[in-house]
Design a protein around this nucleic acid. Sequence first.
DNA 1: CTATATGCAAAAATTTTGCCTGGTA
DNA 2: TACCAGGCAAAATTTTTGCATATAG
Lengths: 148, 148
Amino acid sequence: MKQDILRSELRKRKQRMTAQRELILKAFMESGEEHMSAEEVYRKVLERRLRISKATVYRTVELLTEVGLLRKIVFRDGVVRYELVDKGEHHHHHLVCNSCGKVIEFPEDLLDGLENLIEEKTGFKITDHQLKFYGLCSECQKSIANKE
Amino acid sequence: MKQDILRSELRKRKQRMTAQRELILKAFMESGEEHMSAEEVYRKVLERRLRISKATVYRTVELLTEVGLLRKIVFRDGVVRYELVDKGEHHHHHLVCNSCGKVIEFPEDLLDGLENLIEEKTGFKITDHQLKFYGLCSECQKSIANKE
DNA sequence: CTATATGCAAAAATTTTGCCTGGTA
DNA sequence: TACCAGGCAAAATTTTTGCATATAG
C-alpha cells in the first residue's frame, strides 16, 4: 500500500502524514493520466472540490519524489511532470508524438546490460535511465496522409 | 558549413539571414558548452559585447530547432536546452550526475535496431530518440566516500 | 521598397518563498 | 503542546507577445 510506504518514509524523516499528501498520492494512483505536472495535479484535486493550495502541490510532488514514490520526467515541452514509480514493475519507455503530443508507454527494458557497459567505460554509477522516442503516432500519420 | 545550411533553409521559408541569427549559431559552434538554455545563449552573446535582445534569442533558438540545426533537450531540472545537431555524426547519449549536475556525453548508438522493433509493434513512426542515464559521476562518488 | 526581424517593455505563465495559522503526533 | 505543514499572497523566474522601428533581399 503506497499510503503506508509514505507514512513510514515520513516517520523516518520526522515528517507528518497529512490529508493533502495522501490526496495528491491518490490523485496519481487513481488518475487515468500516466504523467502529471504540478498544475495538472492541482486541477485534478480541485475537480474533487477539495481545497488545496498550489504551493502545497509543488512542495508535495517534490517530497513524493524524494521519498521515491514519484519519478520526475520531462518531455521536450519543458514541462516537469511526475509519474508513479511502481517498484518491481518493469521499466517502460515513452513514445511521444511530435504532432499531437500524446505519450504512450512502451513496456520493455532493453537497457539492463547496457548500464553495466557504461559503468565500466566511464566510472559513472548509474541509478536510473530514461529513454524517449519521438515521432508520429499512427493517427497523426493518417491525418497527414489524408491531407495530401 | 552550417551558416550556409541556415541560409538556404531560410531561403526556402522566405525568411532572412540576419546578424543575430548567425551570431547565435556561432555561439553554439564555438562554445565549449555542449548544451545551452536560451538564457545561457543570451549571456554568451553579451560576453562578446554584442547587443541582442532576449526575445530574439528565444525566437532564434526555436527557429534553429525547426530548421534542424539544433536539437532540444531537457534534463530533469526542467530547463529547456539546445545542442548542435551534427548530421552524420554518431548519436550520443547523456550521463547526468545527480549530485553535481554535470552532463557528459557517451558516444555510442545502441538503439538503431530497437527503433524498427518499436515501429512494428506500435505503428509509431520514430524520427528521433533521447536516452539519458542518471547516477553519480566518479568525482562525486569519491567525495561521498571521503565523507564517510 | 516591402515584408520580415529586432528591440523593448509589458504581459503572461510558472515556480518559489515568507509568514502566520492550523493540525498531527 | 510543540513543531511541521498548509494557505495565501508576494516575489522571483522564465517565457511570450505586441508594436514601433530597422533592415535584408
